[in-house]
């Protein structure tokens, strides 16, 4: 407990945020976020991760400003397989396209895949986990059995088989990855729901006549979201690697698109003489997935420090 009079207490907007006795709910909420940010800020590795992920998002948004679209997609056969130069910072590929520009535009594909997978996986995971945890009984048994079955499958191989069945392409790669990625979220949501099922505020809502659907959506979902989102951040790296793996095998984004995994695959043919064609896009995959891992680790440390 802090004393009313604090020596050297922050003033101004920081003082308002760190006020031990917030005057409003919003002030308390913002203060909590600010304290979390301060703790996160001290974690150098986590900050590195945040910077990498932010850079990915910015690169995807401002790709046309960072690189010339023409260089990324237009084939200039007389300029093929060039070494590093001012015009081509990372050289050119086997069709004379600028690798730097392709990597920059490729960030859009990576971000699209990650975004789409999250949009699919979160509702499916919550949609299965929440009722299982809330209702219990046979609903729980059936839903968790299904989850266990999907959890017991090898992820990449199943995604591979799905991608093969649905045909190659980004959309199908996204569906394939999502189909194999949702079970952990269902389990997490179930566990989070079970710990809160008999909480007093839930019973209060029940007494007021709120429907189960309403309780799940307005009372339980907001409480589950933080841990689910942390888990999602940690999973991002795996999703990116699986997507890149599918691309590398030729089952993800198709050739003219600058998908990083597919770029590594085409660069294999000239690996020994023009090493940059395959390794530069691979490095991009590596850095981005490292960024998500660092960020996720930092967020997890934060939530563990707060809860324990």
């Amino acid at each position: 407990m802090s004393t009313p009079l604090r020596v050297g207490a922050p003033t101004g907007w920081r003082g308002w945020l760190l006020d031990p006795a917030p005057a409003s709910r919003n002030q308390a909420r913002l203060g909590r976020w600010y304290r979390a940010w301060l703790a996160f800020h001290r974690n150098g590795l986590a900050m590195t991760g945040l910077v990498i992920v932010a850079a990915l998002v910015l690169a995807a948004i401002f790709a046309p400003l960072l690189a010339d679209r023409e260089l990324a997609f237009h084939q200039v056969l007389e300029d093929r397989l060039q070494d590093f130069s001012w015009l081509h910072p990372f050289g050119t590929d086997e069709l004379g396209r600028d690798i730097y520009a392709r990597v920059v535009f490729g960030s859009r594909i990576t971000l699209t895949i990650v975004g789409l997978v999250s949009i699919i996986v979160l509702p499916v995971g919550l949609g299965i986990g929440l009722p299982a945890g809330y209702f219990g009984g046979w609903i729980d048994s059936v839903l968790m059995r299904i989850t266990d079955i999907f959890l017991a499958f090898p992820r990449l191989v199943l995604a591979l088989a799905f991608a093969a069945a649905l045909g190659p392409g980004i959309e199908n790669a996204v569906i394939a990855i999502s189909l194999t990625a949702w079970p952990p979220y269902a389990r997490l949501a179930r566990a989070e729901t079970m710990t809160r099922r008999h909480a007093e505020f839930i019973e209060a809502a029940q007494l007021q006549g709120a429907s189960s659907f309403r309780i799940l959506l307005t009372q339980i979902v907001p409480l589950c979201l933080p841990s689910v989102i942390i888990r999602l951040t940690l999973d991002m790296a795996g999703i990116i690697l699986t997507a890149a793996g599918l691309g590398f095998l030729g089952l993800g984004a198709q050739p003219p698109l600058p998908e990083w995994g597919a770029m590594v695959s085409t660069g294999r043919a000239v690996l020994l003489d023009q090493w940059w064609v395959a390794t530069i896009p691979g490095t991009a995959i590596f850095i981005v997935s490292l960024g998500f891992n660092l960020l996720g680790d930092g967020l997890r440390d934060l939530s563990e420090a707060r809860s324990g």
Binding site: L241, V264, S265, F286, S289
Partner: peptide, 18 residues
């Protein structure tokens, strides 16, 4: 080990071969 988690195995294989 964080690096190991983050590396695309096919890329690492190519770099190793190189």
């Amino acid at each position: 080990s964080l690096l190991g988690y983050s590396m695309p195995v096919f890329w690492l294989g190519l770099v190793g071969l190189l």
